[in-house]
């Protein structure tokens, strides 16, 4: 059996106001998995990711990362994260693309050490890979929304993570760049057996690239390979979203 990267055991969560958001989730990601997480607005996808990242404490059940309970996990450099709306409100910050992407190396370089030439070379390489090579020294306030989003993708990739958690990373990114982005993820996956979880509301595009799909609505409605999902897509989506979405799904 392959190494377990993320393991959720009967994980439940509610915010302070008490409504149960996640209810006894059991879920496992093995090395090399590329999981697409699907679910309607407010179904708890972002919450689940924050639990995996240790940004929220589990109320019940456990989260394990690389075999270690998340509360004791210290190897954060193994993990890359793009938060939902990561770019929101950062436009006015006086920093260049290079500075922002380099901040993704902060854990890897280590306390009291300063960034060196080789780190900046790595930054330049990753920025080029997300198609922003020309913008390396531009202030982020000068970028378009989609370009800014790609800066945050680059920041998540720059430390060569083993696990990537991507919460709607492609919102505002144009069609062609989305294809490029997925292509980049696939080649990274092949190069270093990257494990990934991605949330996207563009189910049609996403499921072409991932190899597993998980459908979330308080509990897990479906959890299987991308092929199984494709075969039962209508039924699964209908049970999750209700009738309204079926029309949308047919368009793909």
């Amino acid at each position: 059996m392959k190494e377990s990267v993320v393991r959720l055991s009967s994980l439940s969560f509610q915010y302070e106001d008490g409504k149960k958001i996640l209810d006894h989730i059991n879920f496992n990601m093995e090395k090399g998995d590329f999981v697409g997480l699907v679910g309607p607005n407010g179904s708890g996808k972002s919450t689940l990711m924050k639990l995996i990242l240790g940004l929220l404490p589990p109320k019940e059940g456990t989260v394990e990362l690389f075999g270690t309970p998340v509360q004791k996990f210290r190897d954060w450099t193994k993990i890359g994260y793009v938060a939902q709306q990561a770019a929101h409100g950062t436009g006015g910050f006086p920093a260049t693309v290079k500075e922002v992407v380099a901040s993704g190396l902060v854990g890897k370089v280590g306390l009291f050490r300063r960034l060196k030439r080789e780190h900046y070379e790595k930054v330049a390489e990753v920025v080029k890979r997300v198609g922003l090579g020309e913008k390396l020294n531009d202030r982020i306030g000068k970028l378009s929304g989609g370009q800014l989003q790609r800066v945050f993708i680059a920041r998540a990739l720059v430390a060569d993570p083993e696990l990537l958690i991507l919460d709607e990373p492609t919102v505002g990114v144009d069609q062609e760049s989305i294809e490029q982005f997925y292509g980049l993820l696939r080649s990274l996956k092949e190069e270093n057996e990257l494990t990934m979880m991605i949330v996207s509301h563009d189910v049609g595009v996403m499921t072409q690239w991932v190899n597993k799909v998980a459908c979330l609505q308080r509990g897990l409605h479906f959890h299987g390979t991308a092929d199984e999902f494709a075969h039962n897509q209508d039924k699964i989506l209908q049970s999750m979203y209700g009738d309204a979405i079926r029309v949308l799904a047919h368009h793909h």
Partner: peptide, 24 residues
């Protein structure tokens, strides 16, 4: 500021991400 520049920058720019990067 000399020795913790990158930590200070990371925390100032994006606290949540700094935390996920293992910054104290």
């Amino acid at each position: 500021v000399f020795f913790l520049y990158k930590e200070l920058f990371a925390v100032s720019f994006d606290e949540e991400h700094a935390r996920v990067s293992g910054v104290a």
